[in-house]
Each structure stands twice: as structure tokens, then as C-alpha cells.
Amino acid sequence: MTAVQDHATTGHTISANGASPAEKAKDRRVLAILIGLAMLGLLAITAYLTYGVQGSWSYALSLRSRQVGSLIVVGIAIGASSLVFQTIAGSRILTPGVMGFDAVYVLIQTMIVGLFGASTLQLLGVMERFALNTFALMIFGLLLFRFLFRSNSRNLFVVVLVGIVLGSLFASLSTLTSRLLSPDDFLTLQTVLFASFTTVDPVLLGVTGAATAFGLLALWPQLRKLDVVDLGHDGCVALGVDYHRTVRTTLVIVTLLVAASTALVGPMIFLGLIVANLARQALPTHRHTSLVVASALIGLLFTVGGQFLVTHVFDLQTPISVVINLVGGLYFIVLLLRTDRL
């Protein structure tokens, strides 16, 4: 047997770019799904902006475009960050939300108010506050990575458990600290933490939007390496990908995206979990360039579409985060029960 065989003799119709008919069909399906998601996203945005406008259009549009802007930032940031986090954690059950990243963000805010008073928080501009919080969150993320993911025999059940325990620990710490605050400080904290979609600070939207855009740009060159990260540490080393560096870089970008989304709407624990897993189920591919785009678009659909439903169907009675956490919590349990390998 010689090393070189003409493919023509093997009886397969492989085109010059190496794709078989089955692969081409698969690629077309991936593209079709991505285009479909993008169209649905545009539709949702248009509907959100224009549905049932009464009175002044210019007022309605300027208000609603700020709202929809923050919904888009949140959806995309959570969708993209959750998907790549699953990859570096090596598990489809682990997302930043599940691992308590949002809870840490809230804790950091609460501690600042608790330790230095609300006036300090207000003294800092929106931008400085965001930078400070993001920086603290990055340190947490890197520490978590160091302790949980660097050991060679990482047990994912332990990681999930630790993440959930840490998440509730930080949530409880935040609650405890906020109980100790003076009523004035507490009110300030509330407005900072849970900037609702109905009243969006344009500066905050600008800062978080820019952070998200920067995060996505920085993420793009990592995506092909993340394909290799799916093969695990040894697979990465064998193929010349610096595993630890790739994981660390990705983690820093993830914290930036999580910080952006949490600064806008507060914790959305299970949104990322639903969105990233839907993207993986919908797309018949392992390529992160497609998966991340799909996850971001599905995230956008969930936030914009969800808020649309909350506003126009549930008459603002139920906050969107409650709906998403209810659905997401159920989905999380189903995933836990169905997965034999986390």
C-alpha cells in the first residue's frame, strides 16, 4: 500500500475544499439556522420598538431603543460568555451563572457600599464603578480557575457543587451585608444593582455596550483554539495550543461579558445555561465560530422576546428574570437528570 492514493479511486465525491456532500448539507444547515436566528432577532427588536406605540413616536422610540439596547447587550453577552465557559469548563452544565459569577458581582457592589458607604459608590462615575467591579470579578474568576480547573483530576461533580455552594454563599453574604446598611445606602444599592429595563442609564448602556463589543472582538481569535480545547489538555498540547493560556484568556473575556450583563440587569442565573445548550442542540457542528454566534443570537431572542412578552402579555406583572429563572431552573434539573457525563 502506498501512502498516496488518489481519492477518485476511493469512490467518494470530495470537492477541492475537502467537503463531502453530507458535510456540505450540514454546513448549509448551520448557515440557514444562523440566518434564521438573525432574522428572528431583527423581528423581535422591531416588534419591541414599534408594537402598540401610543402618543409621541419620537419619545417612545428613544425610550424603547435604550431599553432594547440593554436587552441586546445582556442577551449577547450572556449567550456568548456561557457558551465559551462551557467549553473551558469541559461541561455543558457549567456556566458563569451557575458557578456564581453574577452573585460575586452583586457581592462586590454590596461590600463597597457596606464598607465605604453609598456616597463612595456615587462619587465614582459609572465607568469607574464598572471598571472596579469587573476587575474584582476577574480576580475571582482566575482564583476559581486556579483552584478548580488546574488540578489534573478535576471532578466535575465537585466543581458543580462548589459553584452552587459558592453562589449561594455569596448571595447570602450580600443579603447579610445589605441588612446592615442604613436605609439610604440600601436604596442607593438597589438602584445601582437592579437598574431595571424600563429606566436605562444611557452612560451605563454605553459603557457596557462598549465592554461587550470589546469582549466579543477579543473572543473571536480564541474561537478556533477553543475548538481544540474540546479535545482536553492533552489534545491541546499535542496540537500546539497553549491550553492554560487559552483558557485563561477566555476566562478573562467571560468575566468582562458577565460584568457587562450583570451591571445592566443584575443576576440572570440560568439564562446562559438555557441559551448555550439550545445553541449546541440546534447546530450540528463543533465549531465555536458558529456556536458562539448562535448562542449570542438565541440570548438576544430570549431577552428581547422575553421582555416583549412580559410587557405586552403579562402586563409587567412578572419580572423577566423570574420567568427565565423558573424555566431555566427546571431545565437545569432536567439536564442534571439526563446527563450521565457532566
Binding site: 469541559g90 475548538d227 479535545l231 482536553g232 492533552d234 498540547v237 499535542a238 496540537l239 450540528p284
Partner: peptide
């Protein structure tokens, strides 16, 4: 190098895997 790659993603096809060799 090839060690036992136990955690190979189930979503990879044969050709996907072999293409990784060109990375």
C-alpha cells in the same frame, strides 16, 4: 502524540477529528 483521549466530544465526526491534525 496520542494518549488516550477519553473526553472526546461526541459531536465530532471522523473527518472533523482528522482535520484537527492540521491545526
Amino acid at each position: 502524540v496520542l494518549k488516550q483521549l477519553n473526553q472526546l466530544s461526541a459531536r465530532l465526526t471522523v473527518i472533523d477529528l482528522v482535520r484537527f491534525g492540521r491545526f
